[in-house]
Design a protein around this nucleic acid. Structure first.
Lengths: 142, 142
DNA sequence: TAAATCCCTACCTGACAAGTGGGAAAAATG
DNA sequence: CATTTTTCCCACTTGTCAGGTAGGGATTTA
């Protein structure tokens, strides 16, 4: 039940952007260097974020990326679901048409509940909570 | 973030055993037939359950498997953790020695909380809740 | 012209999921 | 004792996917 690097790196990119609001545009090269992730690989990850308008890209010299909304408006769950494709623990929760044996399935309610619990938890956390967590006042109580 | 067939099948095996307490010993062949899973593959899955004494095996003619404890005493989480190895969403939660950068890590608290939420949820469900779910009185309120 | 995003294709490597196959050992039954 | 029915054990296969790497070309903007 692992979160892949896509999701984890996407989150780190977003956090990095949230922590560098001063620099108006942040080039991918800088993010890659700070996060110690290959620029090439990050390119494919940030492309997804960009297409979904989670970040705002500007080309050319002096260009780079920027969050397109305030950090508090992104939930960790939304970023992870976007990057991972899906967070659901079993594939039958993804397809729109329910499984034929759904009514007999002993475990379906378990998975549905698990899916809900995961989503609910991850949707509580915002990007603002994750950036600069040294400031204790922005932390969620656990 | 998928649960693999190992975990899912292990759960189905345990549910199947819980639903057939009358037959003192249930041969794997019967479980495989009912669950429509290859006997050979199930063999490797039930071996893990057997080694952990989750089930009780008797060889030879008339032999088979049986739950070694009452169904209410197994949590879904314990079965899944056993079969899957680990349910944690990131590998750094598995190693006993913490990551060097743990104190700087922006996302560690998020993963720790997620891990806890998943475990807590899955540990609520018992095998007795999952077997014969048509009896509404045994269901967990969601 | 340099620095940046964007977009494409292709490839690699290793790990792991998901199984298959063969046979040995144990226990009951005839 | 032989046979059948079962668990138990080890090796092997097959395919998929994560997690990248490599390279180039087009476009945009200071």
């Amino acid at each position: 039940m692992r979160i892949s690097t896509k999701g984890r790196y996407a989150l780190r990119v977003m956090i990095d952007l949230a922590e560098h609001p001063g620099e108006d545009r942040v080039p991918l090269k800088d993010i890659a260097a700070r996060q110690e992730i290959s620029e090439k690989y990050l390119e494919s990850i940030i492309a997804v974020l960009s297409k979904a308008s989670y970040v705002d890209a500007v080309r050319g010299k002096g260009g780079g990326y920027r969050l397109s909304r305030p950090a508090q408006t992104y939930s960790a769950g939304s970023i992870l679901r976007l990057a991972e494709g899906s967070l659901s623990p079993v594939s039958c929760l993804d397809s729109d048409e329910p499984c034929i044996r759904a009514s007999q399935c002993r475990t379906l309610p378990l998975w549905e509940g698990l899916d809900r619990v995961i989503d609910d938890y991850l949707d509580q956390y915002t990007l603002a909570d994750l950036a600069k967590p040294l400031d204790a006042s922005t932390q969620i109580e656990k």
